[in-house]
């Protein structure tokens, strides 16, 4: 597949994530949108990984070319899991104290 397809797809997914962050008030949904952004990046990395693998065909390192990208994605998933763990606990803590996950109510700190 032409790599541009994947790029465009990831960008669109990424931007949908961005729009989600911008338009929703529920902290959890916002967080999900962020996960969507991360996944867009993942997809892009995998696609690039295969692209580099493709362009390395016939050379000596064809076996491992582009493997970096996929490993990076692996690490992203690892990190994302940790992040979700922390993030959700923060949201829960917030909910415990305010009984809301609405980010619009987060306005004690301003100016």
């Amino acid at each position: 597949m032409p790599i541009t397809y994947y790029i465009v797809l990831s960008i669109v997914l990424f931007c949908i994530g961005v729009v989600g962050v911008l338009t929703r008030r529920n902290a959890i949904i916002i967080f999900m949108s962020i996960e969507l952004m991360l996944n867009a990046a993942n997809l892009l990395l995998v696609a690039f990984s295969k692209m580099h693998n493709n362009s390395a065909i016939g050379t000596a390192n064809a076996a491992t070319a582009g493997i970096d990208g996929q490993l990076f994605v692996f690490f992203i998933m690892v990190v994302a899991a940790a992040e979700v763990c922390v993030g959700l606990s923060i949201i829960v803590m917030m909910y415990r104290n305010t009984h809301s996950v609405d980010v619009n109510f987060l306005n004690r700190l301003k100016n």
């Binding site: 961005v18 962050v21 911008l22 008030r25 980010v103 619009n104 987060l106 306005n107 301003k110 100016n111």
Partner: peptide, 17 residues
Amino acid sequence: IRLMQSGQVGNYILLMV
């Protein structure tokens, strides 16, 4: 400029975008 610091995450991210 202080008023930009509205305390709203949404505003902040909008400005960032």
